[in-house]
Design a protein around this nucleic acid. Structure first.
Lengths: 126, 126
DNA sequence: GTTTATGCAAATTCTTTGCAATACT
DNA sequence: AGTATTGCAAAGAATTTGCATAAAC
């Protein structure tokens, strides 16, 4: 795993991403890992995994920081413009695998895009 | 269902939006209005103005809540998809007046879009 | 006069920091 | 051995809440 050492904590945390839903808030992770590691450690591991390009983070509409496994964003060549969908009711966040075209004639240098779509998920609609 | 009253505080706060840049963080507003009203009041007025449709809010990459005057979003008919641009260096946020097309074949009910573009503003590039 | 707005202080919640101790390679 | 990682406690920062008072309609 490169610079990031293979500690038990890192494996526990990564495991959650391998098995669970694709986007999880830090708060939720801290809650789930409460008995196996300190919350500070959770924050720090997430930081490292993001720097390594294994995860990407964004801010939910709830003001929390969310992390998700990187799919195409690891390429790093082009601007990653896949949106995240957050349910207004249950708060769950989901990565959507598609590309939202961003016009490039804006006279701004754009390095990153955070696209958050808010609505209701199928479960909450039913 | 209460009405929004025209108080001196509301006018002071609104004044900042009329004169200043189009997007301001709550923290900045609290700082600017420190001597004329309590920070709790700032939060509450912003809340009301947003409910009235005069302002819209979104979360910056800094984790802060930002507010901006509504332009087209007041129409409320269609999905407002104008992006906000935040400079990674100075942190300033700007509303960009354009429409980012969101595909509607996603099988999600989408009520709102928060599009945050990150990069460097002209001032910081120079 | 009734209802909404405000101030103040305190509480909550999320995140970061410092430092000594521990575990990885 | 050397360096990255962790735990813990404490600090910081943003936002919310409860309640009594004040101001708007």
């Amino acid at each position: 795993m490169g610079i990031v050492r293979q500690t038990a904590s890192v494996r526990s945390l990564w495991n959650i991403f391998e098995q669970g839903q694709d986007a999880i808030s830090v708060v939720e992770l801290v809650k789930q890992l409460k008995h196996s590691m300190n919350k500070t450690t959770v924050y720090r591991i997430l930081d490292r995994l993001e720097q390594e390009g294994k995860l990407h983070s964004f801010n939910g509409s709830d003001g929390l920081r969310w992390y998700a496994k990187c799919h195409d964003c690891s390429a790093e060549k082009h601007l990653d413009t896949h949106p995240h969908f957050q349910c207004n009711e249950c708060g769950k966040v989901e990565c959507l695998s598609l590309n939202i075209p961003i016009p490039n004639h804006l006279n701004h240098q754009i390095d990153q895009a955070q696209i958050l779509l808010l609505g209701q998920c199928d479960a909450c609609l039913a």
